[in-house]
Structures are given as C-alpha cells and as structure tokens.
Design a protein around this nucleic acid. Structure first.
Lengths: 192, 192
DNA sequence: TGACAAATAGACCGATCTGTCTGTATTGAC
DNA sequence: GTCAATACAGACAGATCGGTCTATTTGTCA
C-alpha cells in the first residue's frame, strides 16, 4: 500500500488541519474563495471531508482561518523584514517589501481585498479578520511615519496606505511596475 | 393579464437586451460575477432564459458585455466631467470625480479589479475589456500630466494611476476617506 | 491485545449552477 | 389574415455546490 503509506507519512509530518490550511491557502489565494470548492481543497490536501468539518465546521470558517493565518504570517514577515532597519527609515523600507512581494512568482494581489470583494455579506467571519488586519496596518504606518519625523505624519500615513493599496491592486492587473511606481512616490513623499 | 401588460410595456420601452444588461450591471457590480447566477439576472430583468442566450450566447459573454458598457459609460462620464476644466487642471480635477464616485451610494470598488480577480482565466473575454480600459486610462493620465506641465510627466502619470487604484480599492474596504487621501496626495504631487 | 481517538473513503442529500430545448404568445410587415 | 421574428415560460439535463452520514482503517496507549 504505497499510496496509503505516502499519505500517512504526510499526515504524521504535518497533520490534517495544517494540510487543509495549506491547500486552502494556495487555492483560495490563487483562484478565489468562490471559484474553489471544498472538493478541490480536500483532494489537494489529501484529506477526508469529515476532517474538514471536524476542524473548521464550515467552508466559511475555513476561509476565515485561511485569511487569519495569511495575515498573521504577513505581519511576522513584515516585522522580520524591517527589524534591521532604523525606525526612521521603515516607512520607505516597507515599500521595498511591497515591491518584492509584487515581483514574487505567485503574487496575485491582496487576499484581503479579494475576500472582501467576493464575500459581500457584511457578517461574514472573514470580514472581521480583514478589518483587524487593516487596523494593525494603519497603526504601523502611523508608527513609521512618526518615526520618520515628517511634517504631517497622520496624513502621510494615510497617503502611504493609499499607495500600498494602489501598488498591490495595480500590480495584480498590470504587473509589478505599479509597486515600483508606488515606492517612487513614497520616497518623494517621505523626503519632502 | 396585467402582469403581461406590465412586462410588455417595459419591453417596448427598453428592449430585452438592455434590460438584461441593466440587471447584469446592477447585480454583477453589487455582488460579484460569480455570486450572481443567470436566474437572478433573468428575474431582475423580467426576461426569458432563451433571450439571454439569444443575445449573449453565454454567461461569460454577458459578463464581458456588462464590463464593456460599464467602461464605455465611465469614459464618457469622466470626459464630460472634465470638459469644462482647462487641460492643465484636469489631472487634479479627476480626483474630484474619484472622490464623488467613492462617496456615491452604490459604490463598491472597481468593477475591473473585481472581475480580474474573480475570473482568473487569462483567456476570458472580459479581460480584454479590462486591459483596453486600463490602456485608455493610462493614456489619459499621461495627457493630463503633460498638460499640467509637471517636471516628470511620465512618472507622475504612473504615480497617479497608483493613487487612483489605491483610492478605489481602499474606499471599498475603509470608506471614501481613502479617496480624499488620494486627492490630497495628488494635489501635493502635481504642485511640486 | 484490545480499547479508543482520529483520520479516511465515499455514498448521499437538497440546492444551485450553466445551458438546451419545447411550446406558446405577441408583434409588425405584407 | 398570414407569416416570420421575437420574446416568454419553464421543464429538463448534467455538473457541481456545501454539508451530513455511515463504515472502515490507522496509530496510540494501557
């Protein structure tokens, strides 16, 4: 039974829950949460349907968990990326991170934007995750612009949020050039 | 048969094709192209299924036609809005239009962004429409920044594109404040 | 070894999806 | 009045959706 053996090996290495999240992450991000059915997730994760509903209860919750892990990882990722940069330069350095993201092979825009636009139900659990992440991000931007010592740090932070959204949305449609354009603009803004 | 009479009256006023497009426009934009089935469109349009397939051939083509009309209207809308403004001020004035759009009751982000992110198939007919509209828009921005006489008009035009994308995407998630932030930034950029 | 928890496989349900087809009613041109 | 074009109503097909359920297999621990 080599097939089973492979599965079992995977199972002990990773565990069903994580396999499901990994598959959900890849598929939901790459193709959208409405375009991907749970059967696709199950087959990609080599998992049984009962396991999905045991661990997550519903597809909506799986979507929320996917987004939660995504945003959590993104935060850690960004903070690690900026750790070696002096606080006063972090706002600008952040846009290097954005450019690198937009240029990465699997980039396909912002998962938060996608999910919010696909799930119009205001009560969807994934929306809470999205809202929290936006609040965290806005707070970081204020922190960085304050540390940068620019004149109007509040307005500058809000402008950088616009630049970030534009970089990510634009890069999805037109390619990573948009992210570089955003960085160019951020540099200009933070210099003045 | 008052029911039929009502339908007939509507039919002679508007015509099935336009009724279908009107319904598709409202539903697709408001809830997303994957979330809305053709039955919803048919019922909203008071039309028969055969009419939809007679005029459009498939749902994908209906989506493409919806986007085409949307973008065509948007172009006319923007050009009319800017007609009375001197060319040198149009780049900035355009962001007044964006703010007004973001503040409008039914605003729900950019239909192009939504469609591109929902329909990941690169060969989907709607993608051609989206690409054309982006090209038109980029061209207008270059035109306006050139007329504005800024130093680096090419780079400025690209930066304004980022600001536009950020204004629209951000406003969808956080409200129209983002559009105002983008305008603030555009003014700053065009002044320097 | 035997009990137990966790995972698997997959049948099944009702709903919904796009798309096809049949048949009928309405309309305008001649 | 007849005919062709157009639109309507809706049954139907085949696939897929999210979700429930039963039955079996596996790994762990006493």
């Amino acid at each position: 039974m080599p097939k089973k053996a492979r599965k079992r090996a995977k199972a002990t290495e990773v565990g069903v829950r994580d396999r499901l999240l990994n598959a959900a992450d890849r598929l939901f991000y790459q193709e959208g949460v409405r375009a991907v059915g749970i059967d696709r997730v199950l087959s990609e994760a080599d998992a049984a349907k009962a396991s999905l509903y045991q661990h997550f209860g519903s597809k909506d919750q799986l979507v929320a968990s996917y987004l939660e892990r995504r945003t959590k990882n993104a935060r850690a990722n960004i903070e690690a990326y900026l750790a070696g940069t002096p606080p006063s330069l972090r706002a600008l350095k952040f846009f290097d991170w954005v450019v690198a993201w937009a240029e990465s092979k699997d980039f396909r825009g912002c998962p938060l934007q996608h999910t919010v636009s696909e799930l119009t139900d205001a009560a969807h659990p994934a929306r809470t995750i999205a809202h929290d992440q936006r609040a965290w991000f806005a707070e970081r931007l204020r922190e960085w612009t304050t540390a940068a010592g620019v004149k109007d740090s509040e307005a500058t932070a809000r402008a950088l949020m616009v630049l970030f959204d534009g970089a990510v949305a634009g890069s999805e449609v037109d390619g990573p050039q948009r992210a570089s354009d955003a960085r160019w603009m951020a540099r200009k803004l933070l210099a003045g």
